[in-house]
Design a protein around this nucleic acid. Structure first.
Lengths: 151, 151
DNA sequence: CTATTAAACGAGAATAGTTCTCCAAAAGTC
DNA sequence: GACTTTTGGAGAACTATTCTCGTTTAATAG
């Protein structure tokens, strides 16, 4: 079981925003609470829909701007580094991925490179797994190199 | 080391297309070979760029239509089930995902639900891993249920 | 507490990725 | 080879996202 998320009190939110270098606005506060209350890995539209209950006049642009601000500040993450553009793979064998979060390069790792993944307990109710894969995120050699230079 | 992909001979391609219910056209054939020759998990644009060397007059629309045909026929797969829309997560703890490929729902799996992933050999040259996560793809209970009824 | 400065908001234009529409051209079928 | 079906190309349309700009709100200094 996952613990239900507790909305931080106002002064705690002020502190979080200040540390992130973000000024404290009503819209931002409501958006933050919405994102952290939604367990469903919401899309911008889903957040927009929810937040409009509380602030009917909020604009979708504001939702996007704040999502970006939260991401830049490291308060939230995006689930997939490859939203935004379709990426194809022709390798249909079981395999895993090495993903460079900077240049978005994807490199395959053969199934045999890994010990099989083992679950400690059963998966939550009734989920039917077709296949799984492990995604390693980080920097590829080229991007890691460039990153060292620019430090 | 991965084995280099070998382009199937023409009559083999004809067979593949026939079995997939796709008629055999020059553009389709060149696209197929391009996709299978590219190890980089290419985007439609990347495929387009490459194929234009061979067929300068090909249109981006044709690239998209054939990508879709290949995907529908199961000849290729898309890397991420979440292209098309950004999805956020506020859970910054190490965790894994259960992804329903039908309704796109994402459910978290705590890190402690899994035995740690173990590599058998070293990762390819110089990749710097920040973190990894396991993605289980399949059907959530609701979608699996619906799928049974409609069979 | 007010004046000043900086940041954020809302509206809508602009852009990128993708799909759709339509007609001409090519492929499959007999 | 004639007929039917599918495909390709051009461009319109659509969706997700970012940008621009004038107005409003928050942060800061006095």
């Amino acid at each position: 079981m996952q613990t239900a998320p507790v909305t931080p009190p106002m002064d705690e939110l002020r502190r979080i925003f200040r540390e992130a270098g973000l000024s404290f606005t009503h819209q931002r506060m409501v958006l933050y609470r919405a994102v952290f209350a939604m367990r469903s890995h919401p899309s911008p539209e889903a957040i927009y829909d929810r937040v409009r209950n509380e602030i009917p006049s909020i604009s979708l642009g504001t939702v996007y701007k704040n999502i970006r601000a939260f991401m830049d500040a490291g308060l939230v993450r995006e689930v997939s580094p490859h939203h935004g553009s379709l990426r194809l793979e022709s390798n249909l064998d079981e395999h895993h991925h090495l993903v460079c979060t900077r240049c978005k390069t994807i490199v395959d790792l053969e199934e045999s490179d890994l010990e099989p993944v083992r679950l400690k307990r059963q998966l939550p109710g009734g989920f039917r797994v077709d296949r799984y894969s492990v995604e390693f995120r980080g920097l590829c050699a080229a991007c890691a190199e460039r990153s060292n230079h620019s430090d």
